[in-house]
Computed example of a mutant assay.
Amino acid sequence: MIPTQPTNKELSLGFLGVGWIGRNRMEAILKNTKARAAAITEPNSENLDAAKKSAKNAILKSSPEALFAEEDLDGIVIATPSAMHAKQSMDALKSGKAVFCQKPLGRTAEEVKQVVEASRNADKLLAVDLSYRYTKAFKAVYDTIQKGEIGEIFAVDLTFHNAYGPDKEWFYDIKKSGGGCVMDLGIHLVDLALWSLDFPEIKAVRSHLFHKGNKLTSFEEHVEDFASVNLTSEKDQVINLECSWHVSAGKDAIIEATFYGTKGGASFKNVNGSFYDFKAEKYHGTQTETLVNPPDEWSGRAGIVWVENLLENNRFDEKSATEFIKTALVIDRIYGK
């Protein structure tokens, strides 16, 4: 009998931006999937040299346009500053490539809608690196909620304090970033809450945004470094969000998403101030059940899933695209847009 040949083709990918995050995602994809790094675009020579250690055969393209013009690429992984995400995603999709983009996909809901439309018109798969969805800890919380084990969810508390804050200037420029700590950190937790609650309509939003302890009244000079936000869903579920940069947290980070239901509670939280180690717990009265403990190599998992989906079906995905828009609309409302 003639042995059956494997049917899975090797994907040919282009990587636009291979700084720390872009390189991390590239290495995870190359290590764990049937994909190769065929081409790279990166203006920083140190970043490029580091990336070439993992992608020895990748060719260097001098510009995003040159990268998108490469006909044999199946998809593009985008890890550039936020202001570039929407246009680069649209250009890549229009050139017939699937896209995996760092968040935020756009600085406004309008930009996100334009990218989604480009994905629909090209009929190519679009994904965003909403990485916490893919941690074992949050997946355990999500499954607990979806199975009804803690009853109907009526309240959610979300916290993301980063005691350091970003080290690149563009994060602090509204035109380049689209926003401050809400756009950088809060968007992850808003996505987790909406996803877990099956994306209900949000009927009310109250925001308190601060810069260095003072209420922020204009984004022309500053972006928020502390936010306290209250969302109310169409089902009267209350979602409370606090996030910050540079706050005196007493540790590197506080990252938590806690869900309160009619039969109990469940929580996703970081361990000992870590940005990487997470645990999941389920609560019943005064009792705590641990669902997941670290370690978990999760940081590149969203990209791995995108490649697996790409191998299976490189088509426009209406469900995920609608979710991207719904989250972006909520972020817009937090900013009073």
Rank of each mutant, 00 (worst) to 15 (best):
P3K: 04
Q5K: 10
T7N: 08
K9I: 13
E10T: 15
F15C: 09
G17A: 02
G19R: 10
R25S: 07
I29A: 01
L30Y: 07
N32K: 14
T33W: 04
I40V: 10
E42C: 12
A51F: 10
K52D: 06
K53F: 04
S54H: 14
A55E: 09
A55Y: 07
K61S: 03
S63D: 09
D74C: 02
I76T: 05
I78W: 05
M84F: 15
E111D: 15
A118E: 07
L125R: 13
L126V: 12
L130F: 14
R133S: 06
T135I: 03
T135S: 10
K136R: 15
K139L: 14
T144G: 09
E149G: 09
H161D: 14
Y164F: 12
D167Q: 09
E169K: 14
Y172G: 00
K175P: 00
K175I: 05
K176S: 14
G179H: 10
D184Y: 12
L185K: 08
S196P: 10
A204V: 02
V205R: 03
S207N: 12
L209F: 05
H211R: 12
H211W: 13
K215G: 02
S218Y: 08
E221G: 05
D225G: 07
L231Q: 01
E234L: 00
D236T: 01
S244H: 08
G250A: 10
D252L: 12
A253Y: 05
I254H: 09
I254D: 12
E256I: 06
K263N: 11
N272F: 08
S274P: 05
D277V: 03
D277N: 14
G285I: 13
L291A: 12
V292N: 00
A302M: 04
I304R: 08
I304C: 12
N309T: 05
N314M: 07
R315D: 10
F316I: 11
T322D: 13
A328S: 14
I331Q: 05
G336W: 12
K337A: 13
K337C: 07
